[in-house]
Write a protein that binds this DNA or RNA. Structure first.
Length: 304
DNA sequence: AATGCCCCCAACCGCGGTGGT
DNA sequence: CACCACCGCGGTTGGGGGCAT
């Protein structure tokens, strides 16, 4: 029942059942194959794409790999304070609607946000010994955590106000990105897969030389929103896919990391103290956004 | 140095929705 | 209408790396 009316490419003889499909981590070769194929043919129709590209993967797996990892404008790691704030806010509004939340964080995938939530936020709920869904924890977030984030963002903005990165501006309309179609299909400057200076997942500063040339790949992300534009205008955020296009791994900022020892639960005062410690724990990551930006963000909240 | 433990995140799974035949 | 293939979402997991012992 395999060779029916569906689009079959010439060399496609085997049925999927007898074809052993690979699972687990992707190899560099697979990545390059997938990137090349999408650069030349565009994305979508994942099952046939997988077959035609010669990948022994399910369409599902290919789609996931592309959307969450290989896509040139995907951003991974280094969740900024602003993004943290957005995530907290939107999650308090919508709950676990990860993809909906992700639409408001350009370049972030639902997977990434979900992971962030589980690893960072839920962790702290656990440390506070309360349920993430409890009113107690939600209040803690809303009245302690988020305001503290705003403070920090503002502080960072004024501190580094004159310095570098904050030179952009919104011309805000509204910020929903929606599917950000990177259709490579239309005879676009295809992604020449970067010189496999990509050894292992471990990379070093040497790679950043290839990173610098990442722009020359022509992987222009047509910013689908103003927010997107801001991110890409910012040198730090202008990371095309870090493994294949660029490397910019600083250690994970994690302003939310808690000190190892922790309080005897209960008292609000201690909770405040604790949270303050989390935030005051060194965190070099964050720059961007000035007071004006914060205002904008708050307005966005009100309009969502 | 070796071992154990924990954390994180990439990738998997199941499911419900959708569109085509 | 039923059936089928595919898509996208949300929940879950396992393996690798890092840290502690």
């Amino acid at each position: 029942m395999d060779v029916q009316g569906r689009v079959v490419c010439n060399s496609d003889i085997q049925s999927e059942e007898e074809m052993d499909l690979r699972r687990g981590p992707w190899t560099v070769e697979e990545d390059l194959t997938l990137m090349n194929y999408i650069a030349n043919h565009g994305e979508g129709r994942w099952n046939s794409l997988s077959r035609c590209a010669g990948l022994k993967r399910t369409g599902k797996s290919c789609r996931l790999r592309w959307l969450n990892y290989l896509r040139p404008d995907v951003r991974r790691g280094n969740i900024t304070l602003e993004e943290q704030l957005l995530i907290l806010e939107l999650h308090s509004r919508w709950g676990n609607r990860w993809s909906k939340i992700a639409q408001h964080l350009p370049g972030r995938t639902d997977n990434e946000i979900k992971n962030y939530w589980r690893t960072r936020v839920q962790k702290h709920a656990k440390q506070l010994k309360c349920d993430v869904n409890s009113k107690q924890f939600k209040d803690t977030m809303r009245y302690l955590w988020m305001p503290r984030l705003v403070e920090r963002i503002q502080a960072a903005a004024t501190a580094s106000g004159s310095s570098s990165a904050t030179t952009y501006h919104h011309h805000h309309h509204h910020t929903t990105t929606t599917t950000n179609n990177i259709s490579m299909s239309s005879g676009q400057p295809q992604i020449v897969p970067p010189p496999p200076a990509v050894h292992a997942p471990s990379f070093t500063a040497e790679n950043s030389s290839t990173a610098a040339s990442s722009d020359s790949f022509g992987t222009q992300v047509s910013p689908a929103s103003d927010l997107t534009a801001e991110y890409y205008n910012n040198p730090v955020n202008n990371n095309q896919n870090q493994d294949y296009y660029q490397v910019n791994q600083v250690t994970y900022p994690d302003s939310l990391t808690s000190p190892s020892g922790y309080l005897n639960r209960g008292s609000d005062f201690q909770a405040v103290e604790q949270i303050n410690q989390w935030f005051d724990a060194g965190d070099t990551s964050d720059y961007l956004w000035n007071a004006e930006d914060i205002l904008f963000l708050q307005q966005q909240f009100n309009n969502m």
